[in-house]
Structure formats: structure tokens, C-alpha cells
């Protein structure tokens, strides 16, 4: 049941719990209990909204920053990752295999704000060897949702 609940919630966290129970053919109480348990276990970490900021009048720039760091003895990358993710403007930090170590995503009002963060905060940290900043120009798809296109039903309206 957990897998099915998560599959639905991941697409629509605002779903009515009674409706969720109908869809899965179980009792509403079971859904409530299961969700509470998953929240407690940290499986469900939040219920967020996917926003296409492009369509608003709010200025927003997103950057992906590749960061190469020297891992610390006994800490690996955890310590440095923590120092980075504590900044509220940082939206994600991933440890990555390959040519660099950490992938940091960052939201800012404009390019200047982001470059200031990179030059003042990020690249001056101990253990950070180098950074490479990529600005996102257009989001086609985010969190499994295609942002650009609207779905239209082109099927014949009645068919055998």
C-alpha cells in the first residue's frame, strides 16, 4: 500500500484522503495511519508545490553549481555539504560521482546575487577546490511534469 500511496502523493500531494482511500480500495483510516507513519519515519519529507516561476512576474534565477572539494578525514563530504546546505538560498545539494563532487542548486533574484554567493561564500570555503556555475535558461520539465505543453484529447469522442 505504501508504494501506491507514495506514487499518488508524489504527483498530487493535495489529494483528498477520502478520495485516496477510494482509489486504492482501502479505508481512509488506514491511509491516515500509513501517512503519519511515513512522515514519522522521514519517508515523506514534505508536501510542496511545483511552480513555473517563469509565468509569474517574480524575478528568479536558478543555477546549478558543480563543486570540487577535498574530502575531510573522518567526515568525508558530509561536513562541507552541511556548511553549504545551511544557506537558505541553496535548494539542493547532491554528492555526485564523476568529474566533480557536489552538485548545488541555488535560487537567486538575479545573476549578480548568485555570482556573489559563489564568489563570496562558496569558493572561499575551506576544502572547496573549484566551482563551475551553470545558469538555467529554460525549464522544460521539472519533477516529472512537463511545464511547456498542455495536454489535449485528440481522440474521436465515441468509438467502439
Amino acid at each position: 500500500m505504501r508504494e501506491q500511496i507514495l506514487a499518488i502523493l508524489e504527483k498530487n500531494s493535495r489529494i483528498d484522503l477520502k478520495e485516496l482511500a477510494v482509489l486504492l480500495g482501502v479505508e481512509e483510516l488506514d491511509i491516515v495511519n500509513e501517512m503519519a507513519a511515513m512522515e514519522k519515519e522521514g519517508i515523506i519529507c514534505g508536501y510542496h508545490t511545483l511552480i513555473d516561476w517563469e509565468k509569474t512576474s517574480i524575478d528568479k534565477v536558478t543555477a546549478l553549481i558543480e563543486v570540487r572539494v577535498t574530502p575531510q578525514r573522518g567526515q568525508g563530504f558530509d561536513n562541507i555539504a552541511e556548511r553549504i546546505y545551511k544557506y537558505p538560498e541553496v535548494t539542493a545539494v547532491y554528492l555526485i560521482s564523476g568529474a566533480y563532487d557536489l552538485l548545488v542548486t541555488l535560487d537567486g533574484k538575479n545573476l549578480r546575487e548568485i555570482s556573489r554567493f559563489v564568489s563570496d561564500k562558496l569558493s572561499t570555503m575551506d576544502y572547496v577546490l573549484s566551482t563551475a556555475t551553470h545558469f538555467i535558461l529554460k525549464k522544460y520539465k521539472d519533477h516529472g511534469t512537463i511545464l511547456a505543453k498542455k495536454y489535449e484529447d485528440e481522440r474521436e469522442k465515441v468509438s467502439p
Partner: peptide
């Protein structure tokens, strides 16, 4: 089918193929 296709804003539950 002929009646439905003429009605522009009709919604359909009449389709026999996957969405």
C-alpha cells in the same frame, strides 16, 4: 458519434481506447 461530434463542448465517456 455523429451527434456528439457536432456538439462542441460535450465531454465524452464514450471512447473505446486508452487515454
Amino acid at each position: 458519434f455523429d451527434i456528439v461530434s457536432e456538439m462542441k463542448d460535450a465531454i465524452s465517456l464514450g471512447v473505446g481506447e486508452p487515454d
